[in-house]
Amino acid sequence: MHLSGVHHIAIICSNYERSKKFYTEILGLKIIREVYRKERTSYKLDLALNGNYILELFSFPDPPKRISRPEAAGMRHLAFATPNLDSCIAELTKHQIKSEPIRVDEHTGRRFTFIADPDDLPIEFYEV
């Protein structure tokens, strides 16, 4: 098997407009394509970071809740690399998004923090 990279990550949101705003206006991901799938009563939003397709945002009527804390079984979190964690936190704070206290990776010495997206999914910002 030869894998060449991660193609995308898919997220189902409970409030499409709120999540669309969060991922595009606050995190700055760019819209590649947005389609409404009438037969599913569902939106599908393809998003890019630095020109690379990375995220699919879906809406479905009344999706069930999922345990999502970083230590729960399943996907742990979505992590974004940032060259400056302090400016990233300052930008989040401007949008009234609270981050956890900064931690330091004991193996790399790099700083990181977590926030929650509009559906309480954990998102990490890792300073590189």
Score class of each variant (00 low, 15 high):
H2D: 12
H2Y: 10
L3H: 12
S4L: 10
S4N: 15
G5C: 04
V6M: 14
H7I: 08
H7P: 00
H7F: 09
H8C: 08
I9P: 00
A10M: 11
I12Q: 12
I12R: 13
C13D: 00
S14P: 02
N15I: 01
N15E: 11
E17C: 09
E17P: 00
E17S: 14
E17W: 12
K20L: 09
K21W: 09
F22N: 02
Y23F: 09
Y23Q: 03
T24D: 09
T24R: 03
E25N: 15
I26V: 15
L27K: 02
G28H: 08
K30R: 12
I31S: 11
I32Y: 12
R33E: 14
E34N: 14
E34L: 12
E34A: 07
E34H: 12
V35T: 14
Y36W: 14
Y36N: 10
R37N: 14
K38D: 10
K38Q: 13
R40N: 11
R40Q: 15
T41K: 14
T41V: 06
S42D: 01
Y43G: 03
L45D: 02
L45Y: 04
D46L: 13
L47D: 05
N52A: 14
I54W: 06
I54K: 06
L55H: 04
E56W: 06
L57Y: 06
L57K: 02
L57N: 02
L57I: 08
L57T: 02
S59R: 03
S59A: 07
F60D: 03
P61A: 08
D62Y: 12
P63I: 09
P63M: 04
P64N: 11
K65W: 08
R66T: 13
I67T: 07
R69Y: 14
P70D: 04
A72Y: 12
A73M: 13
G74F: 10
M75S: 11
M75W: 10
M75R: 08
L78R: 04
A79T: 06
A81R: 06
A81K: 10
A81V: 07
T82E: 03
P83S: 12
P83Q: 06
N84Q: 04
L85Q: 08
D86R: 13
D86L: 13
A90S: 13
E91M: 15
T93E: 15
H95L: 00
H95C: 04
I97S: 01
K98G: 05
K98E: 13
K98R: 10
S99R: 05
S99G: 06
V104N: 04
D105G: 08
E106F: 11
G109L: 05
G109W: 09
G109N: 09
R110E: 10
R110C: 13
R111L: 05
R111H: 09
A116C: 10
A116Y: 08
A116W: 07
A116D: 06
D117W: 02
D117Y: 03
P118F: 04
D119N: 08
D120F: 05
L121P: 00
L121Y: 14
I123G: 00
Y126S: 00
E127M: 02
V128Y: 04
